[in-house]
């Protein structure tokens, strides 16, 4: 079970409305590499994991992804709540606004509602953990793309934090995979660009 803490994992305080940027970032709420899919993927895959290391890692990272879902929702909320109708109408957020107003809805930047088809659960621990490694890199790449199109420092500070979490999760999933393939895992560094010690 879960219990809620009335706090964010990382502070968010966005001063300037920007519906265009919100329409891009919403992809990390409900898009193919977003936080909702990440959380559902890991929490669902737990049930067929063979050891404590893999069960704990999927549980705790799956839980952290729910906190990230809340953070991305907070970004969308703060980027849109003070936007005028005219600002929204003249932005790429206009079609979203017609269906969802200033509500936060799980959808991709391209307009596709959240789909469980963006994640996989095979019941095979190796297949699932390798998918999780890829998922973390895809989320990291999406955050990189967001940083390419965003020039708001209040937003980018938060996006950089979320991006960094994907890197850490990738490392932990690599170690979890190693725990069911080779032992010990403690000397391996999985993130690209870093040498094995």
């Amino acid at each position: 079970m879960w219990s809620y803490h009335k706090k964010l994992q990382y502070p968010i305080n966005i001063k300037n409305p920007n519906p265009k940027l919100a329409s891009f970032i919403v992809s990390q709420y409900g898009g193919p590499h977003g936080e909702l899919g990440a959380s559902m993927r890991y929490l669902a895959q737990r049930f067929s994991m063979p050891n404590g290391i893999t069960k704990a890692t999927l549980t705790d990272i799956g839980t952290e992804e729910l906190a990230h879902l809340e953070m991305v929702g907070t970004i969308i909320h703060q980027l849109t709540k003070n936007a005028t109708t005219s600002e929204i109408e003249n932005s790429p957020m206009a079609p979203y606004f017609i269906d969802h107003g200033k509500g936060v809805y799980p959808i991709s930047a391209g307009g596709n509602p959240f789909s469980a088809a963006t994640l996989s659960v095979t019941g095979d621990p190796i297949a699932d953990l390798v998918e999780d490694l890829a998922a973390e890199q895809k989320a990291r790449a999406t955050y990189d793309n967001i940083l390419r199109v965003s020039d708001d420092p209040d937003v980018n500070d938060v996006i950089k934090f979320l991006r960094e979490r994907e890197v850490v999760h990738f490392q932990r999933f690599g170690e979890a995979l190693d725990s069911i393939q080779n032992k010990p895992a403690s000397r391996n560094t999985f993130y690209m660009g870093m040498k094995t010690r």
């Binding site: 404590g52 290391i53 704990a56 890692t57 705790d60 990272i61 952290e64 850490v168 999760h169 932990r172 170690e175 979890a176 725990s179 895992a185 403690s186």
Partner: peptide
């Protein structure tokens, strides 16, 4: 916590 999950 996450580190300990893989280094218990």
């Amino acid at each position: 916590n996450l580190y300990l999950d893989t280094h218990p």
